[in-house]
Structure formats: C-alpha cells, structure tokens
Design a protein around this nucleic acid. Structure first.
Length: 807
RNA sequence: GCGGAUAUGGCGGAAUUGGCAGACGCGUUAGAUUCAGGUUCUAAUGAGCGCAAGCUCAUGGAGGUUCAAGUCCUCUUAUCCGCACCA
C-alpha cells in the first residue's frame, strides 16, 4: 500500500459514498431490533459550528455506529431548531429576511457536520421553520387549547427590555435575560399560557420510569419544587377571610402577624370599602415594589421592608387572637396563596421582619433561643405554648393540627409547587404563529385543523415594537380574517410561540418526517419510541427537557404517542473550554473553530480527540498539543497496516489482549467512557508493535473497534486490505470470556499491608497454594522469621497480606 | 442559605465489590535516525533519600473504621453548576 495517511482525501471520498448510498438511513417497518439515538438539534447560528457541538454528536455517533455493526436498525437523525431571536436580530440589522438567513446558516452547519463524518440519516432532516413541520407544532398547540391546557391570561410577565419580548420564568437568569443579558422588568400583559403545572406531580413521579443522571433528576425535582403543608383560613376584622399557605401548620399558635404580598387582591377591596386607613402609604409601597426589576428585587433581598395595614386585623383561628396584617414583597403573589401567617420564632424571614418592626416572638417549639434567632430545626423539638399541641413532637403536632383544622372546616392539608405555568407568547416575528382567531362574538377560536399551517406572512419589516405588540400586529391584511365559527370579521392572534415549541416534539417527527396526514404515523411511533439514548447539555434540564416531557405526556394522554416518557435514557456531556480553562467566547478570544481542526488534522483526529479529551460528563479544556497525540495514534495504526506479519487469525500470545480489548472498548462505549476505550486501543496498538506487527486478522479487529471513532480512515483501510464489502456493513467483533483470563497472575505480597514483593502464580491456584508460595518466597520467608502470624489473607488474583507481630 | 457535583504528577486524566495509586495521552529529558526544521524510533519521567539492592513520603486538609482507604464514616477547606425571600 505504502501511501501516506491523507485524511483530506479519504474523508471526502467516504463522505461522498455514504451520502450517495444513504448508508446510514434508518428503515421503518423492519423486523430488526431498533435503536433510537438522539442528540439535541442545534440552533443554526451565524457563528457556525462550535467545537462543543461535536462532543455530543460524536459520542452518540460512536454508539450509533457500534449499534449498526451489532445488527440494529439505528435511527440517528439531525435537524434544525431554527426559529429564534438571533436570526431575527441579524435579519433586521442586515436587511435580509430571516428565512434567507436561516437557509444560509443551515447550509453552513450541514456542511460542517458532514465534514465530521457523523452518521446522521439525512433523509430525515427536519427544520422547525418549515411550514410542513410547524403545521404540527401548531396542531399540538390546538390540542392543548382544546383540552384546556392553553389559556390566555392577563398577568405580570417578565419583559426583556432589550429583546422587547416576554420571557418564561425559566429564561430569566439572575434577574436578567438568559439570552442577551438585558434588563428584565415586570409588565402586565395578556399572554398565552400552558398549564404545565397540571403535570407537576407526574413530571416528578415518572422520573422513576427513566434512566437520567442524578444531577438532572435532582435539578428537575428541585425546579418543580413540591412542598406539603396546609392551607388555613384566617378571618379578619374587615369581614373577608384570608387564605394562607404554610408548611409548618404545627406552629400556628406562634403566628403573631400576617403578611400578604403587595399585589394581593384583598388590598384593593379594603381600599374601596374604606376599612384601610393608610391608603397612601400602602399605595406608595405597592408602586415601589412594582417598579423594581427582577434584578433589583433579588439584589436587595436581604433587608426586609413592609407596611402595616391600618384598620384591619386578622384573627388567629386557634386562639382567636387579633394579629396585625402587613404587606411586604418578601411574600410572593405567585406562590401559595400570596399570603402567609408569620411565625417569627420558627422562620428566619419572619424573625428578621419581626425584629425590624418590633413584633412579638412566641416560642412554640422548644429547643432553641428564639430571642437570638429563629429556631427552624423541626426534627428535634417539642411543642410548647400551643394549647392542645403542647408536649407533642413537631411531626405529631402537624398531624393533629391538620385534623383539627379539617374538622372545623378552616383548613386542609395542601401540596404546592414552585413550578409556574409556561408563558407561551412571544412578541416577535420569527416564530410559529399561534393558530387562534379572536372573534368579537365567539372569543378565542382555534383555526380549523384543515387550515393549518397558519403561515408566517412574508413581509418587509419585522422589527419589534416598543409598545409590546408583535410585529405581526402591523400586518393588517394578515391579521384581519373571519371567524371560523360565525364568519364575522375577526383578527388573528399576533403573538408567536417561543423557540421551545418546535423542540418540544421534534424527536417524534424524525420517526416519520414526511408524513402529511399526522405528526407521525402510529406504526412509526410504536416502532421507534421511546428514544433509547438522548444526550444533551445540562443547560436544557429545566427548559427543553422539562417542556418536552410535558408535551409528550399530554400527547400520551390524548393517545397520540405510545409511551408516557419520551426519553428512556438521558446523558449529559461536559463543556469544552478554551485552552485557558475559561468558557469559549469571542470576547475572551479563546474560540477554536472546528473547520480549522478538520483542515489541519482531519475529521477522524478531531473526533478521536474530542472523545479522548477527558471524562465525557465533565468540562475539559481544549489542548492543541494533545490533539497531536491523537493524530499520531491514527498514523501509527495506518503504518501498522503497511507491514502485516504472516499468520492466521490472532496469534496465541495476543489472544488474551485482543479479547480483553474487545470487551473493554465495547463496555466503555456503553458507559460513556470513551476516553478509556481509546486508551485501551492505544495499549493494544503498542502491544502489536512490540510483537513486531499485526496479523491480517488482528488488524481487522483493530479496525472494527476503531471504526466508530475514526470511521473514514478505518473504512479506507478496510477497503485497501480487501476485507470484503464496506466496514459499515461488517459485524462488531465478539470476545470470548474464556480468553480474557491470563494463565498466571501477578500477586502482590504484603506484610502488614506493605508490599514486599510480587509473585507470578497460576490463575487457577487456590488460597492455600498461593499462601504457601508467598510464605516460601525468598524475600518473605526471612521477614517472617521470629514473628507470629496473626492473620493471612488472599484476595484472588490481587494480593496476599500476611499480618504478623513479634512472637 | 438550599440542592447537585468535583478535588489524584508539570498538564488532560486512569484505578470492578475497599485490594499493587498514577493506565493511556500530552509535555519534559537523554540518545539514535533524518536533517534546514519538523517527523520517526529507543529509553527515562510522582517527590525525597541512596553508589546500589532498596527505603520513606504521596490522591485538597484533619480525624476515624479496617489486615488493607483515592474509594467507607465524621468534621473541614476550596472550586464549579443549578436554585434562591417558594412560607
């Protein structure tokens, strides 16, 4: 063969062949076992591919390629999550239509991905901005609407002043916009909402049905934030009762005041009815609270503020004591009932507030010093100053008080979630139009399914407006329509969906991407779902991952999909950092462009390096020095093929190494341990070189093992060596467990836990035999002289430990 | 503050149920080859002591359990990620 390894040439060659032959196309409706591998489809940004993308894509490509060799029908698809703000902003700035921008970006991304030799089934490529795709995104929205899970609500929302757009709670990070870092303020707007809260419990419970990493599980559970407590009714001197929520109903006797959020609706009533005496003061506080941005609100979270409501008192239902009512922004209108009973003795926030406003602090659980700080540790305490609860433990008191409240009809046990409903409206152009018509007579009317998709109108200007209206609102001949029910003049909904819409079900579309009758056929879904292995970033844990589980559960409930969960197994890769250990970013100047790496070293080296860089689940800094080691390894593999040694099959002295490597590479790939799988292949290569070269069969096995990582090079060598057919259609090698065991093992011999010598013993030797050998050893025997043998241990295949003491 | 994780050579990282710490790679050093340089090959490479056989110390820190601890327990420090007035 005697040619130099030239990745540029052979990579192009094989990419062309794979493309022309559709080598990696998945088949619907075969008898073969299926395997559905999925990676998060990218947002085709203007910057092109990042070196972080291939880490995830290559990892599952390795799995997908291995599964194919193992005889599976593999679905490993790719597509584009192409709606979104950066495209729209770029389009506005450069006066190019977002559709064109998207097309260009997709073309660039696709060629970059293809240059990496990823075995995606490109016949199933999808694009969320394709009307044939978003038709079904809209269809799902209509089903949600018809089942009462999509509703419109006047509410205070997060408004990004820079994007000029509403954000979901999940999109607000540290009080600023997750995407652009812009200031987020509150704005009261009428918004489409999705009732994800209806699924809160199931989104927690069904985590037991799937295989997710602990950190993902924990983060989702924490985000959903279930708590159990009680809702209790407090009467007031003004007449109207106030409902409060507490997780500590046992401390009810210690409630010395009440706090309601500044937005609590009862305040308006008390103003109107005239019972409230300090209206001006209360108004001023409400306005100040409303004006604060999310950022300020979290910044100044330390110091408690508030105003007492003069003229109205609440009545503690267990002892009929009148207690004052305050408003304070430490109570959130959106959680629980927007009102709390304050127990300063046993809640830190209440304690701070009570100290500041000079309110009484009553100890109701013994064990702390409530004058010094709130005693919140409820596990140990015994109830005091609590009437009929005195002497009980906290747990007993909780049960007893809830029984008491329930019997009197003034309270009940109650579960609350931190999870809020999903704000689903965006006031931007480049998104799926929400398929609803506003009719003055009929209200919100769904667009008939036969009229889907509601296409985005082609327009000249799609700039966001300062008044908070969608740019679509200005396109009157699109907005004005007729009511599908009564035929009267009506108007289209002008808000669009958030980017999370299209990505909440895309994995279903891959099963049957060209279906124009359904989002995917029943047969296709039953065959392919659930996704067997889904890899993606941690940043999507509380956004995409939660949203898509919610949509999927809904679709399951209405009989569209066959599984309660979309993804059987989820894994998460670590980030690839810049060479300086910091996150890669343009401003830090540490960005590595994958194109440059492919050009300089080839795609196979790039793939191999990204899999070898470190623990797959952890962040790892890029190293331009280390990547050379990967290229060197491939060159050595190449060179090994040039001088095969004669011999049939695997030579006896290499049988064990070869079998062990086959086992290790296979197992490591399944366990996300790509780095050690590669290390094992490197070790085998070293051994083959030490043995003077590889036989034809040994080399063939090495190429098979390496193929998922370096598919082009191994395919080329497979052809040159004439192993027959294409490697892509070959069979993954099997190992013989009997041949993974050496004939002799090296045993460490310790005296009192310190290693004295090493011994070769037959693998089959039993404990007495090995111990006898050890004790007779020339290094060990003298050391045992005059000592008393207290204990002798033999760990099979590992070590002997002789415990001695002076006789 | 709460939740999750991490800490091992100069660097990235290995290490089944507790059982020989540092696999594999990078880097470095020496030598060989080629030479304009890179490439390639061989050897060495945790630290300290020793001519050597060898010894001692080493997995963020301090204790503990154990014949045996990177691994288990307690405390502690640092870093990263997520959440954060959620009653």
């Amino acid at each position: 063969m005697l040619t130099k390894y030239n990745p540029a040439e052979i990579e192009k060659k094989w990419q062309k062949i794979w493309d022309e032959e559709n080598t990696f196309a998945a088949e619907n409706g075969t008898e073969k076992p299926k395997f559905y591998a999925l990676v998060e489809f990218p947002y085709p940004s203007g910057q092109g591919l990042h070196v972080g993308h291939p880490r995830s894509y290559t990892a599952l490509d390795v799995v997908a390629r291995k599964r194919r060799l193992e005889g599976y029908n593999v679905l490993y698809p790719m597509g584009w999550d192409a709606f979104g703000l950066p495209t729209e902003n770029f389009a506005i700035k450069n006066h190019i239509h977002p559709e064109i921008v998207t097309k260009n970006n997709v073309a660039r991304f696709k060629s970059q991905l293809q240059a990496l030799g990823l075995s995606f089934d490109w016949t199933r490529e999808i694009n969320t901005t394709d009307p044939e795709y978003y038709k079904w995104t809209q269809w799902i929205f209509l089903q949600l609407f018809k089942h009462g899970l999509a509703y419109k609500k006047e509410m205070s929302v997060n408004w990004c002043t820079s994007c000029k757009c509403v954000l979901a709670n999940e999109e607000v990070v540290n009080g600023v916009c997750e995407r652009c870092g812009g200031e987020v303020v509150h704005k009261v707007k009428s918004q489409w909402m999705l009732k994800i809260t209806e699924y809160a419990q199931r989104l927690i419970d069904d985590l037991d049905l799937v295989d997710y990493p602990e950190r993902v599980r924990a983060q989702q559970i924490h985000w959903i934030g279930r708590s159990t407590g009680a809702q209790v009714t407090f009467q007031t001197t003004a007449g109207q009762p106030v409902e409060i929520y507490t997780t500590r109903p046992d401390t009810l006797f210690g409630a010395t005041y009440m706090v309601v959020s500044p937005e609590h609706p009862l305040i308006e009533e008390w103003m109107k009815s005239g019972v409230l005496q300090n209206i001006d003061q209360v108004r001023a506080y409400q306005e100040a609270a409303a004006k604060k941005s999310d950022f300020e609100r979290t910044e100044v979270a330390k110091d408690k503020t508030g105003v007492k409501l003069e003229g109205v008192m609440a009545i503690n239902p267990v002892n009929d004591r009148e207690i004052p009512i305050f408003i304070s922004d430490y109570v959130l209108v959106s959680y629980g009932t927007g009102a709390i009973m304050a127990v300063p003795g046993h809640d830190t926030r209440d304690w701070e507030f009570a100290k500041k406003f000079g309110l009484p602090i009553i100890e109701v659980v013994k064990g702390g010093d409530v004058e010094k700080e709130a005693f919140t540790d409820c596990a140990t305490g015994i109830m005091v100053n609590s009437g009929f609860l005195d002497g009980l433990t906290v747990e007993e008191a909780k049960k007893k008080i809830i029984a008491f409240l329930t019997e009197k009809g003034i309270g009940e046990s109650k579960v609350n979630f931190k999870l809020r409903d999903w704000v689903f409206s965006r006031q931007r152009y480049w998104g799926e139009p929400i398929p609803i018509v506003h009719c003055p007579h009929c209200g919100f009317v769904p667009v008939p399914e036969s009229q889907l998709p509601v296409r985005l109108p082609m327009v000249e200007s799609y700039e966001p407006t300062d008044n908070g209206e969608s740019p679509l609102a200005a396109i009157t001949d699109w907005v004005n329509t007729t009511c599908p029910v009564c035929g009267a003049p009506a108007q289209r909904e002008t808000d669009t969906m958030p980017q999370w819409g299209g990505s909440s079900w895309y994995f279903l579309r891959y099963c049957d991407p060209h279906n124009d009758k359904e989002l995917a056929s029943k047969e296709a879904l039953e065959y392919w779902m659930p996704v067997n292995w889904y890899n993606g970033g941690m940043e999507h844990t509380t956004l995409h991952l939660l949203y898509s589980r919610f949509w999927h559960k809904f679709l399951y409930d209405i009989g569209v999909v066959p599984t309660p969960e979309p993804y059987a197994k989820r894994t998460s890769h670590g980030m690839i950092l810049g060479e300086n250990g910091e996150k890669m970013s343009k401003s830090r100047g540490n960005v590595v462009n994958p194109d440059d790496i492919v050009n300089e070293y080839g795609a196979d080296t790039m793939r191999l390096y990204e899999m070898f860089i470190g623990d797959f689940e952890k962040a790892a800094p890029w190293s331009s020095a280390s990547i050379r080691g990967c290229r060197r390894f491939l060159e050595r593999v190449w060179a090994l093929g040039e001088s095969l040694v004669s011999g049939d099959g695997v030579r006896p002295q290499l049988e064990i190494s070869v079998n062990k490597t086959i086992r290790k590479v296979g197992e490591d790939i399944e366990n996300l341990k790509y780095n050690t799988a590669i290390a094992a292949m490197m070790a085998l290569l070293n051994e083959l070189c030490d043995a003077g070269g590889a036989t034809r069969e040994e080399y063939r096995l090495l190429l098979l093992l390496l193929n998922p990582f370096a598919p082009h090079m191994t395919e080329e060598l497979w052809e040159r060596m004439g192993y027959g057919g294409q490697l892509a259609h070959a069979q993954w090698p099997k190992y013989d467990p009997a041949k993974c065991v050496e004939e002799t093992v090296e045993i460490a011999v310790q005296i009192n836990g310190k290693i004295r010598t090493r011994l070769q013993v037959p693998t089959t030797a039993g404990a007495p035999e090995v111990l006898a050998l050890a004790k007779a050893d020339e290094k060990i025997a003298p050391a045992l002289e005059g000592m008393q043998l207290v204990k002798e241990l033999y760990v099979p295949g590992k070590l002997v430990n002789l415990v001695v003491k002076p006789a």
